[in-house]
Computed example of a mutant assay.
Amino acid sequence: MSTPQRIARAYHDHGHHDPVTHLALSYEDRFLRRKVLTTSDGASLLVDLPQTTSLDHGGVLLLEGGGEVAVIAAPEPLLQVSADDLTRIAWHIGNRHTPCQIEAERLLIKPDHVMADMLARLGATTCEVTEPFTPEGGAYGHGRTHSHAH
């Protein structure tokens, strides 16, 4: 494998300059420490962060030697959830520590047939969509939610 053209060893949750390029990554792919990725302009980028980090949509990786690479949430398969009592449905999703994007008229979660069955039993309607996934952060407003095994 060839040596990456660019190296990023730091991350910020927002940019300060126009990015030189961007990375479109799924929710799962935005959780990393060290990996070689391909940017939108086709260049290799070695991400080598000091610790495993949750990269947010709109954040930037800082390049050695200057420049920023914007992080974009890539479209991915999701389950759209709607219901008359969306607050109640959101509680049940949260009670299962499931990452959830909360909007006024709908919720978005990763596809899961067990969750879909539970939601249907609670009176929710679900349908498959493909969109960027930007779920709410953890209990303190950042980071990832975890299963009970955390």
Rank of each mutant, 00 (worst) to 15 (best):
residue 4 P to C: 00
residue 6 R to V: 00
residue 6 R to N: 11
residue 7 I to Q: 12
residue 7 I to M: 14
residue 8 A to Q: 04
residue 9 R to K: 12
residue 9 R to V: 09
residue 10 A to K: 14
residue 11 Y to A: 07
residue 15 G to V: 00
residue 15 G to I: 00
residue 16 H to M: 13
residue 17 H to T: 15
residue 17 H to L: 15
residue 18 D to L: 12
residue 20 V to L: 15
residue 22 H to K: 07
residue 22 H to G: 04
residue 23 L to G: 03
residue 23 L to P: 04
residue 23 L to Q: 02
residue 26 S to C: 03
residue 27 Y to A: 00
residue 28 E to W: 06
residue 28 E to P: 05
residue 29 D to T: 04
residue 29 D to H: 12
residue 33 R to A: 14
residue 36 V to Y: 04
residue 36 V to L: 06
residue 39 T to F: 05
residue 39 T to C: 14
residue 40 S to H: 14
residue 41 D to W: 01
residue 41 D to V: 01
residue 44 S to R: 14
residue 44 S to G: 13
residue 44 S to D: 13
residue 45 L to S: 02
residue 46 L to C: 06
residue 47 V to T: 02
residue 48 D to S: 09
residue 51 Q to P: 08
residue 53 T to W: 01
residue 55 L to V: 08
residue 56 D to I: 10
residue 56 D to C: 11
residue 56 D to H: 11
residue 57 H to T: 05
residue 57 H to P: 03
residue 57 H to V: 04
residue 59 G to N: 02
residue 59 G to H: 02
residue 60 V to R: 04
residue 60 V to L: 07
residue 61 L to D: 04
residue 62 L to F: 03
residue 63 L to K: 07
residue 63 L to Y: 06
residue 63 L to D: 12
residue 64 E to F: 01
residue 64 E to I: 01
residue 65 G to E: 09
residue 66 G to W: 03
residue 66 G to E: 04
residue 66 G to Y: 01
residue 70 A to R: 12
residue 71 V to S: 05
residue 74 A to N: 03
residue 77 P to N: 06
residue 77 P to V: 05
residue 78 L to G: 03
residue 78 L to W: 04
residue 80 Q to N: 06
residue 81 V to Y: 00
residue 83 A to V: 07
residue 88 R to M: 09
residue 89 I to N: 03
residue 89 I to P: 05
residue 90 A to D: 11
residue 91 W to A: 12
residue 91 W to V: 10
residue 91 W to R: 11
residue 92 H to F: 15
residue 95 N to A: 15
residue 97 H to D: 09
residue 99 P to K: 00
residue 99 P to D: 00
residue 101 Q to V: 13
residue 101 Q to K: 09
residue 101 Q to S: 13
residue 102 I to W: 06
residue 102 I to L: 10
residue 103 E to D: 14
residue 103 E to M: 15
residue 104 A to D: 15
residue 106 R to E: 13
residue 106 R to Y: 15
residue 108 L to V: 03
residue 108 L to R: 13
residue 108 L to N: 07
residue 109 I to N: 06
residue 111 P to C: 03
residue 115 M to R: 09
residue 117 D to T: 14
residue 117 D to K: 12
residue 118 M to Y: 12
residue 118 M to T: 12
residue 118 M to N: 08
residue 119 L to E: 05
residue 120 A to F: 15
residue 121 R to W: 13
residue 122 L to R: 06
residue 122 L to M: 06
residue 123 G to A: 12
residue 123 G to E: 08
residue 124 A to T: 00
residue 126 T to S: 08
residue 127 C to S: 13
residue 129 V to E: 01
residue 129 V to M: 02
residue 130 T to P: 10
residue 130 T to L: 08
residue 130 T to N: 09
residue 131 E to D: 10
residue 131 E to Y: 03
residue 132 P to G: 10
residue 132 P to E: 12
residue 134 T to I: 09
residue 135 P to T: 01
residue 135 P to R: 00
residue 135 P to L: 03
residue 139 A to W: 09
residue 140 Y to Q: 14
residue 143 G to W: 05
residue 146 H to A: 14
residue 146 H to T: 10
residue 147 S to Y: 10
residue 148 H to A: 07
residue 148 H to M: 12
residue 150 H to V: 15
